[in-house]
Write a protein that binds this DNA or RNA. Structure first.
Length: 495
RNA sequence: GCCCCCAUCGUCUAGCGGCCGAGGAUUUCGCCCUUUCAAGGCGGCGACACGGGUUCGAAUCCCGUUGGGGGCACCA
């Protein structure tokens, strides 16, 4: 295992000489929870590469860790991907010629491959128990050595094997690494060589007959004829091992591209502590899928030196995996919010009003959909997420109790202003924003008040707050009776 | 401990030897617009981690240092 041959370039992207509609990419998540934004970006880039080439995009569920994988997680995964608008040509719910697309549904195949490797001598049975391995691992670490399997079961004789079997020991199957350095070619990073000494024999088949990720992903990538594998940087060290598996399979490897990780503001991996990591969470907190997609696309990739907004079609037309950045990107929630605000303003009112319902009722507001729709033009340009809608629209559907600042204003000496407003507003023949504007504008003149002095008390009375959508339009939406009675109530309260 | 990756404004990035006294976006600050808040317009602050090379010339190439990150499982 220590002899070091000349580095061999095993994956030079030859299988990926495939172009155009021959391109096959996949997203292969483990269903262990929600769809993390980092994985969402991986899915997006892979999808973009497939769509860019008119190729095929595959969704494959890697659930070989049976303890952590759940059906519910698969549903969330599918839901989140669909919400983002990332569709797949082969995979769960759509089928395809290379099924099953859920690894635990095709375990026999992995077992057959393992048996073949065993026969060919590229794999062997290892009788070491997890406990023994853990002890040795810790001891190696303590001695300052590189932990990793020492290969002791590789040379077991028939007698020793029989002895272990007689002992009742179960075995796992390990892949026998060739003992030479292995070079990996990456579309984003170029060539990297992994020293033979660090490429220890690894388990491909657990004692319970379920393959490990290292085997399952490699075998399926070959079986499903993948031409490009885009995945997270954390998987880079597994590439030389999977390259060897593919070599043993006699299959040309796909081209690899390892994406830099997405980290939190503290440069640590994005965690729940940061707040927002699940795609589902972004949906629930009022983000639009096109905003998240646009933002994610720009995390590690850029079109040129000035383009910021790219819709789906533009992304597909422009995406180039070789221009992806190599350094980890900090997830900037503020920028996402800004971008979301942009997409909200771009959206048509009908769609937004439809989306608003969920947020309004979550806030306990029983809203009239028609009124929400009519209000949309004046509110959509002042929010960054849909979650801000209830706060902005509440006064239209519920009686207001002035907040602290509004109450303070109403308690001040503004009764005269409110009275004047009342008498200017009451005789209005048409209750329109324009008419209200005229009336209040005239009052401002006659009383010699500044705009602020004239309008803020009215705003406080009508909306219960000092910050609201534009006053005239708000009053038009609220309607004559409710607007006037709120002003009257304020006058009465002030004595 | 060992292996691998990475390093441009606070953040996302453009830059692939001279066009860079470093461009865009976001954040922040100021001004304009303005009925509040937004949106929009204009402007300001703000970066090539450090040290050696190579070269006529380096943010761009090489080496080292430092600093981040990833990996070293019968997890993926």
């Amino acid at each position: 295992m220590t002899e070091t041959g000349a580095p061999q370039v095993v994956a030079d992207g030859s299988a990926a000489a495939a172009a155009g509609s021959d391109v096959r990419c996949r997203f292969a998540p483990s269903p262990t929870g929600y769809l993390h934004v980092g994985n969402a970006r991986t899915a997006l880039f892979s999808w973009l590469l497939a769509r860019r080439n008119g190729g095929t995009f595959v969704l494959r569920v890697e659930d070989t860790d049976r303890a952590r994988s759940t059906d519910e997680a698969i549903e969330i995964l599918i839901h989140s991907l669909r919400w983002l608008g990332i569709d797949w040509d082969e995979g769960p719910e759509v089928g395809g010629p290379f099924g099953p697309y859920r690894q635990t549904e095709g375990l026999d195949h992995f077992r057959e491959v393992t048996d073949r490797f065993l026969e060919a001598g590229t794999a062997y049975r290892c009788y070491c128990t997890p406990e023994e391995l853990e002890d040795r691992r810790r001891a190696a670490l303590k001695r300052g050595e590189t932990p990793g399997y020492d290969g002791r079961c590789r040379t077991l004789g028939d007698k020793e094997r029989a002895a272990f079997e007689a002992e009742g020991r179960s075995f796992a199957v390990r892949f026998a690494m060739p003992g030479n350095d292995i070079a990996v070619h990456d579309l984003i990073r170029g060539e990297t060589t992994f020293p033979a000494a660090d490429l220890k024999d690894f388990v491909i088949m657990r004692s319970n007959g379920v393959p490990t990720y290292l085997l399952a992903a490699a075998v399926d990538d070959v079986r499903m004829k993948m031409t490009h594998v885009i995945r997270g940087e954390d998987l880079m060290p597994s590439t030389p091992r999977q390259l060897e598996i593919m070599k043993a399979l006699g299959a040309p490897p796909p081209a690899y591209a390892h994406l830099p990780l997405i980290v939190g503001p503290n440069r640590q991996p994005l965690s729940k502590r940061f707040g927002a990591v699940a795609v589902e969470h972004f949906r629930e907190t009022g983000f639009l899928p096109e905003a998240l997609v646009n933002y994610l696309a720009l995390l590690g990739w850029s079109f040129d030196e000035k383009t910021t907004f790219l819709d789906r079609a533009q992304l597909i037309g422009a995406f180039d995996v070789s221009h992806v950045s190599r350094n980890p990107a900090v997830f900037d929630l503020q920028k996402l919010e800004w971008m979301n605000g942009h997409y909200i303003r771009e959206s048509d009112d009908e769609r937004l009003a439809g989306l608003a319902g969920e947020f309004l009722s979550a806030a306990g507001i029983d809203a009239d959909p028609q009124l929400v729709l009519r209000a949309m033009p004046i509110v959509k340009e002042r929010i960054h997420t849909l979650a801000e809608l209830p706060g902005m629209l509440r006064f239209l559907f519920e009686d207001v109790t002035p907040d602290e600042k509004a109450a303070a204003m109403l308690a001040g000496d503004h009764v005269a202003t409110l009275r004047a407003a009342l008498s200017a507003l009451e005789p209005l023949p048409d209750w329109t924003a324009d008419a209200i504007h005229q009336a209040l504008g005239g009052l401002k003149e006659s009383l010699g008040l500044s705009s602020k002095q004239a309008f803020q008390p009215v705003r406080a009375a009508v909306t219960g707050t000092l910050v609201s959508p534009p006053l005239y339009e708000s009053m038009e939406l609220l309607g004559r009776e409710r607007s006037l009675s709120r002003i009257r109530a304020a006058v009465d309260a002030a004595g």
